[in-house]
Design a protein around this nucleic acid. Structure first.
Lengths: 257, 257
DNA sequence: CGTTTAATTGACATTATTCAACCCGGGTGG
DNA sequence: CCACCCGGGTTGAATAATGTCAATTAAACG
């Protein structure tokens, strides 16, 4: 852990992460300063977690929230008979455990997929949060809203799209989310996901992931390789999955283009 | 529409709905009064919507939120080729469009499944909401958190449970949510869902819903009939689906038992 | 009554899973 | 330097789960 109270240079990690967070939240424009201020005041330390380590386990208490500074985090649930479902993944600029100030425990596991650095934010729970830190409260509410929206879209994918549509949709989402934080290089998505991770995100078997990637590759739409996916034909990807980025609520994305 | 400003008797509909809402939110105990006060102050009118009518359509603006007083509301997405996925359903005491004060538009349809009465709440968007109405802000954040958690659980169901487990889990959830608002009579769930609705919630075909109900009925676990499902063996249902109500965050449910 | 809507059933097609084998590149230790 | 091993990744064949189509029944309603 690194004590942050003394390291608040203008481009300190916390400052950068806070701005990454704020950048997504244009619809709360008027609270921007308040958000940054709350984050800076309440951030207490920095935590480094190495790859494939648990961050919070199911039913464990976690009375604080984290702002992801770097790395990929999975939120998942393990079922009997070895099944696993990855519910969501958090990227830099995302808030982790955003519901932990509202509820006692989380019913999911949080795991570091890569090595991860987190900024720990210690805020009061319940009433005080809303009365004394409207900026942070807004950031949490916004994050919950966006997460909720992403999950709703994932429910649609898992419920009513076939494997090709699921994969195409997931790739479009990855591209959009990584673009939003400036982590896309050209048409290549760099990601720490192997095919088993894809399987557990899409709710299909590893082998089927492989076959589905092959279909995409045969049609020169996208190509999987270790640590990356090349998007050869984004238009087709979006078409296959009827992708519409509206659910991510990056209002500024629309403006940017 | 009924004007509410004059009809604030102690047991007025709005008062009852607000208490239903607050009752779920024990973890925000200290804000209880504030929540009720905000709801009462900001509630502007009451809307009645008849069965199978849209309330808000995809991509439509909706700059207010609603508190459900009576009836069932579906939040769903229609896909090409006639597919539909019901993402979630709202019951009395639930907040509708809880993200509409954060985002411009919703990317889902809201439809009244039964005739529905809603209390319309007109609150400021963005900054003002958090600075001037912490009670309502907390209620919204709490609702978003609970919804998010319910959706996460649904992702697990859709991704990694087979049809029997999916149905069993859905029935357990229905029982828990209806109990929470005092709408369970004995072991019977009264609901306005036909088998097609179940199909669109579970992400399977109507016919398969039928077959799955038959399996449950053959084993004397649950029985579907028009407008209701009888739970003959709740223990088995919970066992089949590994149901754990923690994700609903009705902390008081645990205490009550 | 006839008409409509939902539920039910069987036969068959499709999709996805499981199992088993094999490949391939990157360590690791002899 | 090579043999081995290991964690993915890839492939095919057999199987199971679920979907589609088509026809039938049942209940609900004017």
């Amino acid at each position: 852990m690194t004590d942050l109270s003394t390291t608040q240079r203008p481009d300190s990690p916390i400052e950068k992460a806070a701005h990454l967070l704020r950048r997504k939240m244009t619809s709360l424009g008027g609270l921007s300063d308040s958000i940054i201020r709350d984050v800076k005041t309440l951030a207490c330390d920095r935590i480094e977690i190495s790859a494939n380590r648990p961050i919070v386990k199911e039913n464990e208490r976690c009375p604080q929230i984290y702002l992801v500074e770097a790395g990929w985090v999975f939120r998942s649930r393990g079922l009997a008979s070895g099944r696993r479902q990855i519910v969501n993944y958090a990227l830099p600029g995302d808030i982790l455990c955003s519901d932990s100030l509202l509820f006692e425990t989380s019913s999911f596991d949080f795991t570091a997929r890569t090595s991860v650095s987190l900024i720990r934010i210690e805020a009061p729970q319940g009433p005080e949060l809303f009365e004394r830190h409207p900026g942070l409260a807004a950031a949490i509410a916004w994050t919950l809203g966006q997460e909720e929206s992403i999950l709703a879209e994932r429910v649609v994918s898992l419920g009513r799209r076939d494997s090709l549509e699921k994969l195409a949709h997931a790739l479009c989402e990855l591209e959009a989310r990584l673009s939003a934080i400036g982590q896309m290089r050209g048409r290549t998505i760099e990601l720490p996901l192997n095919q088993e991770d894809f399987a557990d995100i899409l709710g299909i078997s590893v082998i089927h992931v492989n076959r589905t990637f092959r279909r995409l590759s045969e049609e020169k739409i996208a190509e999987y390789r270790k640590g990356a996916v090349d998007l050869l034909d984004r238009a087709r990807l979006a078409e296959i999955s009827a992708f519409d980025a509206a659910y991510l609520h990056y209002d500024w994305v629309a403006l940017q283009r």
